[in-house]
Design a protein around this nucleic acid. Structure first.
Lengths: 219, 219, 219, 219
DNA sequence: GATGAATGAGGTTTCATTCAT
DNA sequence: TATGAATGAAACCTCATTCAT
């Protein structure tokens, strides 16, 4: 999943201007890992620098050597996720076969991909969503980056479907793809809550796939 | 649900067991109002008891006379919203005419209703979502209450549509309605972010309505 | 020395807007007293909120209830000093008899007054001087207030002396009075260092008085 | 005093005992220069080792190779100033002509010298004064060194003037010279604050010169 | 009912300082 | 010689929370 050189998620050193060397980069990585890990078990607003540092086997002071605050660390994590995850989702849409006979299977794969990605990064995505809702533009851009790859690919697919006559000509590809991605993202985010209501992952996946295939290929 | 008496959103006095009189209820209301107001301009995790109290023209000590903590106040607000908003959304679906010729117009009204409700209570709904995502069951139940009325009504409508032969017989009404409500809620929540991308409220409403009508009445 | 009502040196409550009541004012006073006391034995830059609070028999949190930071407390002290001390010094000059036969005695009293005031408030005056030198205008104004009463009085006296023919007509009263006050303030501030060099307080007082009398009354 | 070799203000290496070579001395010089520079724009108590080091293009660790702490660097700077400045001021007094016809002109030069020196080293002199006031004997000695040359020279001049009959025989040369130097130093230090009050540099210089000439040569 | 006042508790942040390289 | 990196230690400052009035 992307060879991502160690400095991909790095801006420069915070405290002073120096670019960190190998040891420093490793520390930074450990801090990011701890942040990510802690986020799984802790509410965003309960994340503490002390805890992150301890979990990374270092001291708060060291944390501040690499990040001005927790938000910055989250931003770095979000950046990585937007890159990796965004590409992954886009590929699922783009490399799938959407012609009527295969559309439903492809749609299943896409739905599955969303569910899986959210499953794996639930907490971080939650932070991104929250910050976006609160108006933070840096996070909003990352969120857009995460979703837009698939959305654009979907839009192109829809345009193709319209041209092929599978979809009515008054279809609005941009709006439709946007709404579909919203649906995928939201269901993926709230899957747990829904599961409680008699819909397990497979059920959800198929329901999503049906709407998706239907909307994109009228199948 | 809820006899709508003035104390509907009230539990009893916290500190002592006394039931608040008129003056007390007024204070409580002011505190709730301030909380709601502050929430518009402040991130959840930045809400402070002092600020709420001061905004309500009273003191922190007084806040604690009515709520054990900020979460409790938010819960009270969420409770009211779930009641009012839930009924409102359910009515929109239930009282609409979903037979093919009218389905699209009804769908537009429903979509509009979601967008409007979220517009008006963005911040509070954000808190509800966040808490739900973080696993808080009290908020999850309120969230369900907010969404389930419309979801159930939609489900019944879909069942009717299947029976009427408008929708294929292998349709899964529960999953489909769930997904559709997800879509509505998510788009409503992120409308602003989407508006930035060339989709204004009307556009979004129509795109939503199309999918909705299509899914429910094959129109 | 000025009955100074208890709120003379008070701005309003810091944390919230409320005006402190009697108990609060007392606490505030204790904090100021501790600050002043500690300043005697501690360098300005080594003053800590914790220490001040402890010395006042309260907690740091309480300190912040009354002052945003240490500087604010010092400013309050300086304000009081400027008021009280400024009036005192002015009176010494103004109420003295500067006609030739008495000028020297009056000058002695003035010099003595400076030495005494600085002796009693050495540390605080040091802070005022330092802040002034560093360009802080709030402190500079207070410093001016402390010195200008006497300076102005002196200036008027000099004008009178010129008119009376005791001083040459090309005397510049403003500059002369300014310089004389500088001399008094500086010697008062550094008296200890000078004492080390064979000049005790009496010696200094007389040396100052001589220059003073000479400059003001040509005696 | 001081053979003015390049290492005059240097003690030996701190960390190890090694005597610094040329490169080392250059680094040390850069650190001193940065300290001096930063002092212009920063309050003493806000000087940080990190900032000094970074400003010198090196690291904190390197700073500690040459100075045990910031105070040591300031002491080194003060030492240089006391040497250079002290000699300069003394020469002004000593090499001037104080006989009645020339006294005023000489006095003007002396006053000008003080104003200029303080103008150029305001911040450092401020530190020296502060430390002196706070009882630090190392700084007090340097301060004395800075001022005593001129003071002693003045004292000798006064003695001469008494002998010549220009001044009354009961004059106390030591006290008088001390007070005069105080006046010069203080006005020089606070010149800016005074300028605000309608006294520009020239005005001040002349007012100082008048008192000086008058006190030393009865002119 | 309401609230001045006080504070324990705890996280944040900053630095001086050290060491291994 | 120089310096990345790390951190102990200490202040700072903020809040939720509690009483006594």
């Amino acid at each position: 999943m992307a060879t991502a050189d160690p400095a991909s998620s790095a801006s420069l050193r915070a405290v002073d201007g120096r670019v960190p060397g190998q040891r420093g980069r490793a520390t930074r990585q450990r801090l990011l890992a701890s942040t990510s890990e802690l986020l799984e078990s802790t509410a965003y607003r309960d994340l503490k620098v002390v805890d992150i540092a301890r979990a990374a086997g270092t001291s708060p002071a060291t944390f501040y050597q690499y990040f001005p605050d927790i938000e910055a660390a989250l931003l770095a994590l979000a950046h990585d996720l937007a890159d990796t995850g965004g590409r992954e989702l886009r590929d699922l849409v783009e490399q799938g076969e959407w012609s009527p006979p295969h559309a439903y299977t492809t749609a299943q794969r896409v739905a599955e991909g969303y569910l899986a990605l959210w499953e794996q990064h639930r907490a971080l995505i939650g932070v991104i969503d929250l910050a976006t809702l609160e108006g933070d533009s840096r996070f909003r851009e990352l969120r857009t980056e995460l979703l837009s790859g698939a959305s654009d690919a979907l839009q192109r697919t829809i345009v193709g479907a319209v041209d092929a006559g599978w979809l009515p000509s008054d279809t609005d590809p941009r709006a439709l793809s946007g709404v579909l991605v919203s649906m995928l993202a939201h269901v993926a985010a709230h899957r747990r809550g829904m599961s409680g209501h008699g819909m397990d992952a497979t059920h959800l996946r198929d329901a999503l796939a049906r709407i998706l295939a239907w909307s994109v290929a009228a199948v």
